[in-house]
Write a protein that binds this DNA or RNA. Structure first.
Lengths: 229, 229
DNA sequence: ATCTTTCACTGACTTATATCATCGTTTCAA
DNA sequence: TTGAAACGATGATATAAGTCAGTGAAAGAT
């Protein structure tokens, strides 16, 4: 599927909305739309990125491998998210890898076409800056949560997050299907601990599951737990 | 002590170096130099900041109170660091509080005087952006470390960090004096666990202590531990 | 359709870390 | 200079979470 950035709704969701007609046209002409299958890698940790990826559809996990061999998922990126911004801005290699959690459609925009806009369009630079300031705040919060909250609390948080940000299917299950190991990866724990916690939540009747699928039933209880009783 | 931004060396350390003569003059005229005593608060979590603080001397801890009542220290800011940037940019209240760890000298620059520069000086905006991109990378790394490394590893990391970024005194002790509770706050653990870990490091002869003061002896061993053997 | 791999789930066990309690020492303000 | 408060240090104990091992079900590949 081919299309013009000018007409792309996704743009409205991110900093690219600050670009003007000409800039969009230029980017549109140079961008490459790619289809990424579930499980495929967009980029690897340590890679030097020469452009950014604009997610049009699907979800990807941004993760970092730790010394002990476990993948720590730092962020789940969806529709509208621009990946690799930081790496391009700071001219450094990425510290994260990106793997598709389901089939994705992304646009690859070469760095050279963004640099002009970063250098000359203050509105755009400001938009990127604002977005990054927000990400930084979230990251700070995440550090505190990692350090101070228990695995139970963090799993409750993640469930609420998934429930809120990814729609539910017809039966009320969270639309994004993650393996227990991926959930553990977001939370920063072992998959066994993750599974046990989920079973305990089931017993409390806060959630129900069917295979990998999870349905959040009692958001209030989960929130109370996440907030520390 | 009063002085002009134009002549301030500190400026060279941060994004303010991208400002031109006129902008500097304007800021210099509006800035207020403050002396903050050890233990005093620069700003509190949740406060709405109407300007930024440029640290000229001393060290401050940027921390967030967690639900369980413990202070999680997210960053130690020194000479050259600009505090409150993010809050000013995103027009949100800070999510962190800043408390002086020793006597400090800071310049307060009202937000209004920066906004002009953010809006019109692309070089400046880019400099801020670059800085924030770097902070974000560090934050991502911190998340992974919090989630995957043990308390021992994280304490080793912090000791190495303190040893490297804050000079040592004549006898080789880390110049920045922190309480064990503050170190625990950086690491995200209880002060008892912190103390016990330090004693274990002493037994290994990796460090030595004298009251609050800590001397790092074997950086190699500490680094190896931090990296996971 | 069958084989293979991945995955959810559970139990048993170990280890790391939090929590509580206490004591002597240092720091600091009156 | 003295008394109070903050701090370092340690022991005892509880608990959370990691690790290892194994089973059956589901998903995916051939």
């Amino acid at each position: 599927m081919e299309s013009r950035c000018e007409n792309c709704i996704i743009r409205q969701l991110n900093s690219l909305k600050a670009l003007n007609k000409e800039e969009l046209k230029r980017i549109s002409d140079s961008k490459v739309t790619k289809t990424i299958k579930k499980g495929e890698t967009l980029f690897e940790e340590g890679e030097k990125l020469n452009g950014v990826f604009c997610v049009r559809d699907g979800v990807t996990k941004l993760a970092k491998m730790s010394d002990n061999g476990k993948d720590q998922i730092v962020k789940l990126a969806t529709k509208g998210e621009v990946l690799g911004q930081r790496s391009v801005i700071s001219q450094e290699a990425t510290n994260l890898s990106a793997v598709a959690l389901n089939d994705m459609e992304v646009c690859y925009i070469p760095k050279s076409h963004l640099e002009d806009s970063i250098n000359n369009n203050t509105e755009f630079t400001k938009a990127v800056l604002l977005h990054m300031a927000h990400d930084l705040k979230l990251a700070d919060d995440a550090i505190v949560d990692m350090a101070q909250k228990s695995v139970k609390q963090r799993i409750a948080q993640v469930l609420l997050y998934l429930h809120e940000y990814f729609d539910t299917d017809a039966e009320g299950f969270i639309a994004l299907i993650l393996t227990r190991e991926d959930i553990a990866g977001v939370v920063g724990t072992a998959k066994e601990a993750c599974i046990r916690t989920l079973t305990s939540f089931k017993k409390e009747n806060w959630i129900s599951t069917e295979g990998k699928r999870i349905k959040v039933i009692d958001t209030v209880a989960l929130q109370r737990l996440a907030d520390g009783f």
